[in-house]
Amino acid sequence: MAASSLATLRSKIEADLRGRVASPFAYRDRNTFELVSTGIPEMDALVGGLPRGAMTEICGAACSGRTSLLLSALASRTADGEVCALVDARDSFDPLTGNAAGIALEKLLWVRCQNIDQALRAMDLLIQAGGFGMVAVDLSDVPTRTVRQVPLNAWFRFRRAVEDTPTILLMIEQESNAKTCASLVLRLEMGEARWAAASESSNFYPFAKLLRGFSVRSDLVRSRIQVPEQQVIDIRVRAQPKTVVQQSTGREMFATETIWRSR
């Protein structure tokens, strides 16, 4: 009797939720994500890629390579034909650099905010709208004490909103704020800057050298990503796909190349 009433109750709940929840009693592994390339092979080797339907945090101080990673990820997504959105909390995106990095600007919705309040509201609207391949939120220039004041339930809400969607929610910050809501947390640090003489004329004019770029050290702070079996390939052994939670287990370096197209 108990089993039949349970089955009746179950079917009733399923009928009530029909159209809103596909299968309410089906087990869903929330740590399995589809991963897409960051556009930087070294980073893909470290983390496996950026997870869809999850929040990723890229942290670091100024000049640590966060923007380079952001531009690379946006370029990778727009090159795949996806529509992306960039919520720019302090209006610091440079379209010239973005274009040179390979971003298809006509596929990037750029929201130029003036403060974090506008940025969070804009992020909420964009996630709710759906259909974006990536929603990137640049909070790099917002003071850390301001970002810390964002209540944790807001991050939970953002994570829940992006779940089960093909959208990558990418946050660029000075430090991680979303805590356990972020499925992937990376910390970047600036390495050595590389300078090179422009030509032999440097003898004539000693300052005529070029900033060629700088190296970036990246640490994997947290990863809740389980890579689906079919996505495990040899090159991603560093991502350790069966590990549920990783704590600072990976470190990788990549170098950036300065764009001289603007000059």
Binding site: D91, L108, L109, W110, V111, F132
Partner: peptide, 29 residues
């Protein structure tokens, strides 16, 4: 790849425009 629904996107853009101002929204050219 699937993109945003144009009708829904237009409403979202209108709301964003109200939030940040019409001139602070769009794609850069």
């Amino acid at each position: 790849p699937c993109g945003p629904d144009p009708e829904k996107l237009e409403v979202t853009i209108a709301r964003l425009g109200k939030l940040v101002g019409e001139g602070n929204l769009g794609c850069a050219e």
